[in-house]
Design a protein around this nucleic acid. Structure first.
Lengths: 356, 356
DNA sequence: ATCATCTAGTTGCGCGCGTTACTAGATGAG
DNA sequence: CTCATCTAGTAACGCGCGCAACTAGATGAT
């Protein structure tokens, strides 16, 4: 009979799928017995013998459970949803990856909804709402809401209907728990690394000073300097546009402003794209990295950091970890338990390459 | 009553969801009537009056259809699955994006399954099988199987149980339809662009010469040259490791091998990462881009191409388009119709920036 | 011999929905 | 008045499954 099954499977593709009932008939038991065996229920008593017969039947028929029907009957879907900008964001994929892997471990499925514009005020706001709506129609048990740069957000109302965890952003108007990078610690570790290498005069290429990334990283930098008895010279902090060009311009400013002896010996770039531009400015002036000027970045944007020459030492944004932690947090919340902290910080580790 | 609903929604989060039955009772009709209205069935006759009452009830109660139950009853899920390496691949996200958007337009949902190793012989092969298995358990109606670089693959047997379309790869042992970039045309357009700018002596930084990308792009390059009455000088084709370092080394070879007058005036780099390294080699020699040496890349790896200085002119791999086309093809196949060609080529358009 | 307990299952309900078949009442033709 | 036809719905089944409640037979204690 296994024969005919294989045959029919090979010839006619669009056949009615094998159900538990088929398995039950094949094994000569009731459908319930099959269910018990497949779900490994301890309270039911099925002899080893029939248990084996059932498993054989499953194999022989190529039975595959119907996840939708199971969800319907059991009133739980084992699905989480994640909504995030997907393509505009080089980082989104890391968050997804982290969440996906963790979900996989927990035997859960991650539904990914597109949100071209996670920004709460954008013109595509409607799309984001629709995306969440779709996820809720799939009866996801929890939601992950991920931003591509650390910021405060307003989360659509519908997201409050199931447990929701914010990743790389925080709830501006509510109580939703969030997971964000420890920008402060990242700033510290970057500066600490430079200090350890003997640098005392450090230039900083800053981001827009009002965003959390800038605030946190600079505070951390100051703290690390203070511990070494140093201060951050405001003149050495230049704000640049968050691109390679911006980094180039800012680096030029810093490098050209001082005579060689007063020139900073290291640059802390608050993101890797700006570091990429800074590299150009440095090389253009005939200076070597890291011998003449050390450079340290932030973000660990793989495509940049790992391919710059020399490879860029940088502080990593822990997107994968945040994604995984998001799923873990969701697991706690959907289990009805409560979590300890409303905001969880995740370490930003230093990645040593060759630019310091 | 809208009041109490809102209230209960706000206070008790984990409430039984509103079902069609609730809507029916609220509107004073049968559940069937609700179903007819929601599905806009033409054959059923419901008066405008009750139709409105039902829609009001849907609004008032905040009814949201249960996608799983609907799938179960209607025997169609409106879901497609996509399996692809997700994080190892900077491109995967573009494919997903394209597919996702198209699916969204078609009112379908895209389930994304992780596959750390889409390679058919890798150690994680089991995971890929498991991923497909999971997708089939969700009763996806079709599968997209996407690779991160153009190559031949062996697709797991289970993927043959539903319509499957390969993206950026082709089926080594079967009949599965595939969608791949037009490497040949891309090579042509790159060289044509350089010719148009007056370059006659063109260096090529090649990839591993046996992969489809290399074969196709070089053939296209030769064709474009031939049309201009030129030939590709084999000496000017250097194979490099597909990284920035590899591009740097290859560029150095090409640049240092000839006296200035015989030096190529343009470099065609078969991927953007190698172009990134080539930039370094060129700048190191005091040469300017594009005045002294023009550079054209391939892939359009945004983070690189758009942030190099000068910005890199490159040929784009049409991942989004391939993803979208994949979904469209799947729609045809799942509708039971057959498609024209077993292999569809997608244009690789030239992206003009500033390096030519 | 009687009754309780245990083993190895089975019967049957309901999850939320799509869908087919049916029906009660209104309308019109003869 | 009778019968056919149309309008505006409704009753009921089944999708595949989980699960609570039940049962037939075997075993053991009294």
């Amino acid at each position: 009979m296994a024969n005919t099954t294989n045959l029919s499977k090979a010839t006619a593709v669009r056949q009615r799928a094998v159900t538990m009932k088929d398995v039950a008939i094949h094994a000569g038991v009731s459908r319930t017995a099959v269910s018990f065996v497949l779900n490994n229920r301890q309270d039911a008593s099925i002899s080893e013998d029939t248990r084996a017969r059932i498993k054989d039947a499953v194999q022989a028929l190529g039975y595959r459970p119907n996840a939708g029907a199971r969800a319907l009957a059991s009133q739980r879907s084992d699905w989480y949803g994640i909504v995030t900008e997907i393509v505009t964001a080089p980082f989104a994929v890391d968050t997804i990856k982290g969440a996906q892997d963790q979900a996989w471990l927990d035997r859960r499925f991650l539904l990914i909804a597109p949100s071209d514009q996670a920004d709460a005020v954008g013109p595509n706001k409607g799309m984001e709402d629709a995306a969440i709506e779709k996820l809720l129609e799939q009866r996801v048990e929890g939601l992950l809401y991920a931003a591509t740069f650390h910021r405060g957000v307003h989360v659509p109302q519908s997201a409050h209907e199931v447990p929701t965890v914010l990743i790389n952003c925080f709830d501006l108007d509510g109580k939703l728990p969030s997971i964000v990078p420890d920008e402060h610690g990242g700033g510290r570790v970057a500066i600490a690394r430079l200090l350890k290498a003997g640098h005392q005069r450090i230039g900083v290429i800053n981001l827009d000073p009002i965003i959390p990334a800038s605030v946190g990283r600079l505070a951390g930098a100051r703290e690390a300097l203070a511990e070494a008895g140093l201060e951050l010279d405001p003149e050495l902090v230049v704000t640049g546009h968050a691109t390679a060009d911006g980094g180039y311009d800012a680096a030029c400013q810093i490098l050209d402003r001082y005579p060689e002896k007063d020139r900073p010996t290291a640059l802390f770039c608050l993101n890797d794209r700006m570091a990429m531009g800074a590299y150009d400015a440095i090389k253009e002036r005939g200076l070597r990295i890291p011998e003449d000027i050390a450079v340290i970045g932030f973000d660990n944007q793989e495509l940049i950091a790992a391919y710059l020459r020399p490879k860029l030492t940088t502080v990593a944004l822990p997107f994968q970890k945040m994604g995984a932690l998001g799923v873990q947090t969701l697991a706690i919340l959907t289990a009805g338990q409560s979590i300890v902290a409303n905001q969880q910080l995740v370490d930003c580790p230093l990645l040593e390459r060759s630019s310091v």
